[in-house]
């Protein structure tokens, strides 16, 4: 017999706000703003965000990049193209309340209430290397849980082979959506076995606190052996699907950004070498490591031509 156990942080159907009311929230927020009660006031200042209790389970063994850089040097095109734009502009994002719809080919679809989730899940601190496809890298102490725990909660059907992620796309909260730099909303995806890998993290914080808006508040993915653009931010929907989902950068420039996007010093970006990277805070470039120094994922790609499936 199949016993369905609803996780405590899943929003029961009766509590899921109908979209019309949800959108009406804007009027409420406008009224709040009018009286000077901005709910997002502190969300770009990492020092003012709520703390989350964690236990450390992973350490990259390298000194973490200073918080000022982690929360001040970001690619989040929904808030502008300059690396400093997200920290400047993301104050308009409202990360609470926030729900993530998890569905598709699963036995138990659910709506995840992020505030409840943060209050209840057993959070881990994992210090991971983070390598941007542009050739710079950081070391970041994330707060998260293995994404696999969410996968187990929704019980994917046998037909589910991939996981598709979608970022919020609200012009009101994200001024960068006016730019046609990508086909919004931002979409990303993983093969189911990649998503289930122990290293794949569903993150809600950095440096022991909730995520600053510019880092993808309130909930994002972290896939440390892939280029940063795979680690999709501010997630609103997760779908289990049968075929490889469309992903934003691959749609924009398929020649340059593959679906897999594994960090690989032997496969150049067509316009620049990926052999070396500049760690933020260092002057000289250092060697880039295969799978960003996480050889334990190599088994996922056994027998695959990594130059072809880049």
């Amino acid at each position: 017999m199949h016993v369905r156990r609803t996780p405590s942080w899943a929003l029961p159907e009766r509590e899921v706000t109908p979209e019309a009311l949800y959108l009406n929230r804007r009027a409420v927020l406008a009224a709040m703003a009018a009286v000077g009660a901005s709910p997002a006031a502190a969300s770009t200042d990492p020092e003012k965000l709520a703390r989350i209790a964690t236990r450390r389970t992973h350490d990259a063994g390298e000194p973490p990049t200073p918080l000022a850089d982690v929360a001040g040097y970001n690619n989040f095109y929904e808030f502008g193209l300059d690396k400093g734009d997200p920290a400047r502009n993301a104050g308009t994002l409202r990360p609470s309340p926030w729900t993530v719809r998890v569905g598709g080919l699963v036995k138990s679809p659910l709506t995840l209430d992020v505030d409840r989730y943060i209050a209840r899940a057993p959070w881990e601190e994992r210090i991971y290397r983070f390598r941007c496809v542009e050739g710079w890298s950081m070391v970041i102490p994330w707060v998260g849980v293995p994404f696999a725990s969410l996968v187990r909660a929704v019980e994917p059907l046998g037909s589910a082979k991939y996981v598709a992620f979608r970022t919020l796309a609200d012009r009101e909260q994200m001024p960068g959506l006016r730019l046609p730099v990508l086909d919004w909303p931002y979409r990303e995806g993983l093969r189911l076995d990649e998503a289930m890998h122990e290293l794949t993290l569903l993150a809600v914080g950095v440096y022991g606190r909730r995520l600053p808006n510019q880092n993808g508040a309130p909930i994002r993915l972290v896939v440390p052996w892939k280029y940063g653009f795979k680690s999709v931010k501010s997630i609103v929907a997760i779908d289990f699907v049968e075929t490889q989902p469309e992903t934003s950068w691959n749609m924009a420039t398929p020649r340059e950004y593959g679906f897999y996007a594994n960090v690989n010093p032997n496969v150049d970006h067509p316009r620049w070498s990926q052999a070396r990277e500049r760690r933020i805070g260092e002057f000289r470039r250092r060697e880039t490591l295969l799978f960003n120094g996480y050889p334990e994922v190599a088994g996922l790609y056994a027998g695959m031509d990594l130059k072809r499936f880049f």
Partner: peptide, 12 residues
């Protein structure tokens, strides 16, 4: 040394 005048990636 903590100056961010040239951003976090002064070389770039």
């Amino acid at each position: 040394p903590g100056s961010r005048m040239l951003t976090a990636e002064p070389v770039a």
